[in-house]
Design a binder for these strands. Structure first.
Lengths: 213, 213
DNA sequence: ACCTGAACACCGTTCAAGT
DNA sequence: ACCTGAACACCGTTCAAGT
């Protein structure tokens, strides 16, 4: 009886797990454990163990632990940029779409967000790819604001200053939200975002200035 | 010759360094090393060594490393609250005084700020004193806003929502500033703060709405 | 009451060596 | 080229013991 000694490959031969794509597997597993244990719960040893690989196998692909984290941040900025782009298309129906998308990303991916803004971008400023990915996301906002200016819907202030302003708002809301400094859990973050962007548009000064006697 | 064998005490006898006030000494030394090495550079062993004390002496006064950090955060919130109160007195000459004071505090004490908002407040939510100190600082802002509302200078929106909005803005600016995500170093943060609060007051919508043809 | 010393269970990282 | 195993220099924390 000539039984097939090797197990039938489903699609493409999925054997050789380790040799397959360790860098991607490491990245994926890192995100997974950060998602569950937080950034400071991430341990190279546990990642390696989860992948069934030696503790030092990682060093062939990432020079450092921080290099691995930089890769996580890079992927985070890339995803954020894409979601901002998608939200930009809905800007006509919902003027707050981009801001809401930003905060939603942070709330949905606190682990990504913490790594992205956990003080890595500046400490490892050498990582040019990370730098580029980060400013790429920022540019989406800048361009959207310029378009609004050209449509005559926005003040003609310096676009990048305007963009930093808006970014600071959503960034602040996002951080307060994922750090649990807003009372309610998730829904409040979106309400606050919509409130904030609405107020930013028309101001918070009292509408009817009390005339003097 | 009867020379004084013991050194003359300057004010009160400052001998017995270790026994004196270890808790305060630990706190002070922790802030000092965080200031220089960053939060993740803080090591209990180095703190103890700098104080000439055993590595485990700390555990008599703080249950944890995180308890020591919580004490740092508590002191930070207390200082911030006091500086906000001081700024509130200048609100008439400078409407942005409180916001500027907030961002200045963060930029001047990034180590404090990082510990305060480094995800400690929520993880160790058990620390009631920290919780109280944190919301104390928030209340200063709320009360200032309510006063502005009563003076008829501010929209009659829900004060706490208004406060969360303003907080998010200065928090966002502060974080971007101390994380090096603003191009210039320190001066830009204040400029951005003034710009932001000015725009928040009157809105960013185009001032002269182009009428339709 | 306050502090010490040895010990434990962890880390990230290096490096010679295997295939 | 890719991975392993032992080793190194670190951590926070526990605990019996000293004064």
């Amino acid at each position: 009886m000539t039984t097939t000694s090797a197990p039938r490959p489903r699609r493409k031969p999925p054997r050789r797990y380790h040799h397959g794509d360790l860098p991607r597997a490491l990245l994926h597993e890192a995100v997974r454990t950060i998602q569950r244990q937080g950034v400071e719960g991430l341990t190279l040893r546990s990642v390696a163990q989860a992948l069934g690989v030696s503790r030092t196998a990682m060093y062939r692909h990432f020079v450092d632990k921080s290099a691995l984290l930089a890769a996580v941040a890079r992927e985070g900025f890339r995803t954020l940029r894409l979601e901002l782009l998608a939200a930009r298309a809905q800007l006509r129906e919902d003027p707050a779409a981009m801001g809401v998308a930003y905060v939603r990303f942070a709330v949905a991916n606190p682990s990504y967000y913490r790594v992205m803004f956990g003080g890595l971008v500046e400490r490892c400023a050498k990582d040019a790819e990370l730098e580029a990915e980060a400013s790429g996301a920022f540019e989406v906002l800048v361009e959207a604001l310029v378009a609004q200016q050209q449509a005559g819907r926005l003040r003609q202030d310096e676009p990048r200053q305007l963009a930093r302003f808006i970014w600071a708002i959503v960034h602040g809301i996002a951080r307060l939200a994922i750090d649990g400094q807003l009372q309610g859990p998730d829904e409040d973050a979106e309400r606050l975002t919509r409130y904030a962007l609405g107020r930013v548009r028309t101001g918070i000064a009292a509408p009817a200035p009390q005339s003097v006697a």
